[in-house]
Design a protein around this nucleic acid. Structure first.
Length: 548
RNA sequence: GCGGGUGUAGCUCAAUGGUAGAGCGUCGGCCUUCCAAGCCGAAUGUGAGGGUUCGAUUCCCUUCACCCGCUCCA
């Protein structure tokens, strides 16, 4: 007896979402009150899946790492430690990191074109023709700006290019901020005047208040990333653990972003969990470490079963990189909810140079400067002051002192869970008791990730099978998440386990009563084999080991 | 935030301005020696709020959520 694996199962997101709900993987947050956009709860199966993902990550990246050896592909040996830092941090952290400025964008919407623009990126120029004076705008940058303004002004006044000199320009190109009256503003893509809304603040960081009194001086933010908790503890870790560069600090924790458009199931949630490593190394070695982590992280997903054509590693192009980054790669998955050919980010591995540690020393750096310089405010002082603490590293052997460079593998735990759910979903044909093929829904999780590792059944409820099965269940409970079921037909019990991805089912049958052996049934192949009751766990356990 | 679509039981779907049904699933019982079988029984509902009406799941308004397209995505 074997299952016909269908390679061409259509991964329908609707079916996956329905299964997640039906079997207790994921629910909408606050569902009985109508749900809350961008927030999701993990059910009894989902919490096990996600915990297994986080556990596998922590085990594979941190606790099982041997700092005495050079792992394959690494430039040398290195140490790994972890931290668990607070969600609410000193507000200055986010000002210095750049999140505060970036996340407090003022935006303007165009009522005509339904487009949205960064208030500070819209520029324009006063122009007059035929007694009408308007402020024509564009969001084109650089040399395109003047050209675009001219084209748009000509078009608005219905003039030909050769009549360009009839336009009376008034003053230089200036930001939209300089204009009070929006009724004479021509939006960057609009055909008529006055279609832009007044600028509105977008709070991409969740704001809260520390202390019982709510006032501006008590404002704090829920972290939009876990990374800063690591950077601000860099010196603490150095001073308390005797780690030496190169080393990494890992952290798993919740982060919060007030996404404008949460969408695609849990893919873009407002509350989500990150698994981040900040890896500190010598500037001269940082490129090698970047390549090591990029490849290592990709292999991690592969080792847990995300090995289909849907997974890819994509190196960012030069134009896509932050000014301070010398390399960034995304690990991406072709989620079923995305259009064909589109991929969604699971993890980004970024070479961040010395940007973060220097920022927390000197103050917010201007990412558009090269080499990086502290961003100055109107008063000529740093826009946001750093901690002033010395975050340089001194090599005690060579005596060299430097700001370490950072390689940052930043993974989304919820996105990983979603990818593993999508990857695992499969439909195939399995025979019923009369031998006729029946459709079967099966979650082909890697055994390390499966919420339930093994289910135990008595074949029928008689002749002592129940007692033996219950005893096996109790024994296995010591080792893993096990499920027991004695109700109804055996086939139905198998199918239920298939739907939550339980890789193995142990069944006590008539022969067990004679020779103390049971059958183990494999989820994917439907193959069954007999083992002694006492060997059950070792038989299962060997499938739960990391494969790399 | 804008535009379009959707919203009836856990799921798939029916029905009606006048007591909301079915199949599957779930639960209980019987039966059952390996893949959703059979028999008996049971529970569960119109996303939320308001309006019109003697009476609204149905008509109207608002809202919420989900899906698609824009926008956004450090």
């Amino acid at each position: 007896m074997s299952a016909q694996t269908s390679q061409q199962t259509v991964k329908s997101m609707d079916k996956i979402v329905a299964l997640c709900r039906r079997r207790g993987f994921l629910f909408q947050s606050s569902e009985i009150y109508g749900g809350l956009n961008g927030f999701w709860d993990y059910g009894p199966m989902g919490v096990e899946l996600k915990r297994n993902i986080k556990q596998a990550w922590w085990h594979d990246m941190v606790t099982s790492h041997n700092e005495l050896l050079t792992p394959p592909g690494a430039p040398g040996p290195y140490a790994m430690v972890g931290v668990d830092t607070t969600i609410i941090m000193h507000p200055q952290v986010w000002k210095v990191s750049g999140h505060y400025d970036l996340f407090h964008d003022m935006m303007v919407d165009c009522r005509e074109t339904k487009r949205r623009y960064r208030y500070d990126q819209v520029v324009g120029r006063w122009v007059q023709y035929g007694g009408q004076r308007i402020f024509v705008t564009t969001d084109e940058e650089g040399p395109q700006t003047e050209q675009d303004l001219l084209q748009r002004a000509l078009k608005f006044f219905k003039l030909r290019s050769k009549n360009a000199e009839e336009l009376q320009w008034d003053g230089p190109v200036q930001p939209l901020k300089c204009v009070q009256d929006f009724s004479v503003v021509l939006g960057p893509d609009a055909k008529s005047l006055g279609t832009l809304t007044q600028p509105r603040e977008f709070n991409l960081m969740f704001k809260t208040y520390v202390g019982a009194l709510a006032g501006e001086e008590n404002v704090a933010f829920l972290r939009p990333e876990t990374a800063q908790g690591i950077f601000v503890n860099f010196k603490n870790v150095l001073d308390s653990t005797r780690v030496k560069i190169p080393f990494g600090i890992a952290q798993i924790g919740k982060s919060f972003r007030n996404e404008i458009t949460p969408r695609y199931f849990t893919f873009r949630s407002r509350e989500f969990e990150q698994m981040e490593i900040e890896f500190f190394c010598h500037p001269k070695e940082s490129q090698q470490w970047y390549k090591y982590w990029r490849d290592r992280r990709f292999q991690w997903y592969v080792s847990l079963g995300l090995d289909s054509q849907r997974l890819r590693l994509r190196e960012h192009g030069a134009e896509e990189l932050s000014h301070y980054s010398t390399g960034t790669a995304d690990i991406e998955y072709a989620f079923p909810f995305l259009p064909p050919g589109k991929f969604g980010e699971l993890e980004g591995i970024a070479h961040r140079g010395d940007f973060d540690l220097r920022s927390h020393m000197e103050g917010k750096l201007d990412p558009n400067t090269r080499p990086l310089q502290v961003e100055l405010g109107p008063d000529g002082k740093p826009r946001w002051r750093g901690s002033g603490k010395d975050l340089t590293y001194r090599d005690e052997v060579t005596g060299e002192r430097y700001v370490p460079h950072v390689v940052e593998p930043s993974a989304g735990a919820d996105r990983a869970a979603l990818a593993f759910l999508c990857e695992a979903y499969d439909e195939d044909q399995a025979p019923d008791e009369k031998g006729n093929p029946q459709n079967r829904v099966v979650m082909r999780f890697h055994p390390r990730l499966a919420p339930i590792k093994v289910a135990v059944f008595p074949l029928v409820k008689k002749e002592g099978m129940v007692e033996i099965a219950r005893d096996i269940y109790g024994q296995l409970k010591k080792h893993a998440n096990v499920f027991y079921d004695e109700k109804g037909a055996i086939g139905r019990r198998y199918r239920r386990q298939d739907e939550v991805g339980t890789p193995f089912c142990i069944t006590v049958d008539g022969q067990t009563l004679e020779d103390r052996t049971v059958t183990i049934r494999d989820r994917d192949t439907l193959r069954q084999w007999r083992v002694k009751i006492d060997d059950c766990w070792s038989e299962i356990e060997k499938h739960l080991q990391p494969t790399h």
